[in-house]
Amino acid sequence: MNYLLFICSGGDYSADDVELLQRECPRWVEEMDGRGVRLLGRQLDDPETAVTVRVRDGETLLSDGPFAESKEFVAGFDVLRCQDLDEAIEVAAKHPVSWFREIEIRPFREGLEVGEEALAFGRGEDAGADPYCLMLCLDGIPAAPEVEESVMREGRAWSEDLRARGVQVLAHPLQHKDAATTVRVRGGETLVSDGPFVETKEFIGGIAFIRCAGRQAAIEIAAAHPLARHHMVEVRPFLTE
């Protein structure tokens, strides 16, 4: 199964903690890449760089900051391929961030394909463009079947168009937040809990990693997604080397 790890952060780290994270995170990446459980992953830029995009009555509305107002925020993603949830929990519990903050494990919907482009993206190869993450938000309340159907259809068309243009490197829907599991490690003990890292009305229902020509282009791409009309899309740059 494929899982997305939301690496969660927030609050201040001490100098010692920062040093430990800088030392241990690359070791984790090396170990998990070696085992073949981690396919790719990248760090996001600070939440202050986020912009949340809504389209209402044909007008694009922008607000600064992440979609959810909370102390904690997503600081990066890793895409895993694991045997089952127990393996994903074990992998998450070895990630140093879980020793200080927490990591949410969310299964992808079936059918995720990770191509060569996505792997290169994971290595930080951006082909001269700017890497952005689009977090597609939902509220989980089912709309009328014809609305759901049209959102799905338009979403697929949006995705195919971006892929054809070489803009999108990876995009896939996630399982509902009810399928989320949050992992923390305290005092050497792995603490597992049901649910997402932060309970909000709206939650990330899918992600798209794209490469485009800057922030304005990323906003336009986000605004073209049907969920920008029904809910919202958070746009955040990935960190670059």
Binding site: L85, P107, A179, A180
Partner: peptide, 17 residues
Amino acid sequence: TRTKAKIAAAGIPYRVP
């Protein structure tokens, strides 16, 4: 229903640990 749905969706293994 939700509990069973999570077992399937999250890939909780059916086994003795």
